[in-house]
């Protein structure tokens, strides 16, 4: 397969400095001057609490990847670990940070099932054995029209797939998230049909951009971001990036992913980022990059079109949303 370098953002697409207004920094700067005087009186310092995950174990020997985006500001550790959609730990964005703190990710097992030769239960250590973690800085676009730039550390899903030796009947892969009523407060409420499931077509799963993620920045992946093992498919909406994977099943028929099951008129199987196919309740034409005030134009396939558009040649992307 021809692996093209990701299209760098043309300078004309970079938001003009004058327009660019980093709202949080602006607000903070204003806060320093404006509020400092009053802060002592109202105790503003007391309000400032540590946000985001505590820093965990460092990962060694992470390789840089040519598939990373360049020229884009990477979101902070705090942003990436304090603003999460992980409904197993509550439907509020700050829920996962709070409730996933004590989630046990060791020992961890991944069950390999379905149309493949190497069925069985693998320890996480075996899944990771022999893999070199690469830093992949990817744009991450949520279906709710916000986005971040995230430095994942992971390895190609295709490596694991090859080791499982799928049969010719394996046309799709179905992934399943952990389900534990004791540890995950979110699953005690039937908000979604637990356990969470996602799927990829085999060619999507084999694509070099598709990775299994075990780290963030140069550290072990924090629980709220889907530890110990999650998926990253950067040209698809965030809900495709299934977290805390416990099962990988090779199947012949297109699996039903959880959000499609929840509302098939709103969420499809493919869920490719596409500015011209609106979600029925909001536009997908623009997005807010976390940390910015002005909204950005959303790019087809989240800007990865050069690398992935060929996967969908001849398909009606309006129907296959």
């Amino acid at each position: 397969m021809l692996i093209k370098r990701p299209a760098d953002i043309r300078s004309s697409e970079i938001t003009d400095k004058k327009l660019y207004l980093n709202r949080r920094e602006f607000i903070r700067a204003a806060g320093v001057t404006g509020v400092a005087a009053a802060a002592g009186a109202i105790g503003a310092e007391a309000l400032v609490e540590a946000k985001g995950a505590a820093h965990g174990r460092k990962l060694a020997n992470i390789k840089k990847s040519p598939l990373s985006v360049s020229n884009e500001k990477i979101n902070s550790w705090e942003d990436i670990t304090s603003y999460n959609n992980y409904y197993e730990f509550g439907t509020d964005k700050d829920g996962p940070e709070q409730y996933a703190r004590d989630f046990k990710t060791q020992p961890w097992k991944v069950s390999i099932e379905g149309e493949c030769a190497k069925k069985g239960v693998m320890d996480l250590e075996d899944v990771l054995k022999g893999e070199t973690l690469e830093e992949r800085v990817y744009r991450h676009r949520c279906v709710e029209a916000w986005s971040m730039v995230i430095p994942w550390a992971g390895f190609p899903l295709s490596n694991l797939i090859k080791r499982c030796e799928p049969t010719s009947k394996a046309k799709y892969i179905e992934f399943t998230t952990a389900y534990d009523q004791r540890q995950m407060i979110g699953v005690r409420v039937p908000v979604l049909n637990w356990p969470y499931k996602e799927g990829l077509r085999m060619d999507e799963a084999m694509h070099p951009l598709t990775i299994l993620v075990a780290g963030l920045y140069d550290e072990v992946l924090p629980n709220q971001d889907g530890a110990p093992l999650r998926l990253a498919v950067p040209w698809k909406y965030g809900f495709k990036h299934i977290k805390s994977i416990v099962k990988v099943k090779f199947v012949e028929k297109q699996p039903l992913n959880t959000w499609q099951e929840q509302a098939s008129n709103e969420y499809g199987f493919y869920a490719n980022v596409n500015p011209s196919v609106d979600h029925p309740r909001w536009s997908q034409a623009t997005e807010r990059r976390i940390g910015e005030f002005f909204r950005r134009k959303t790019l087809l396939f989240n800007g990865y079109g050069d690398q992935v558009a060929s996967l969908y040649a001849g398909m009606d992307l309006r129907k296959n949303y």
Binding site: R23, R24, I27, R28, A30, G31, G34, V35, A44, L47, V48, E49, N75, E78, D79, S82, Y83, K93, D94, W146, R288, I290, G291, F293
Partner: peptide, 10 residues
């Protein structure tokens, strides 16, 4: 002002 909203204050 004190940066105590979420990562998406807007």
């Amino acid at each position: 002002l004190t940066g105590n909203l979420s990562a998406n204050p807007l």
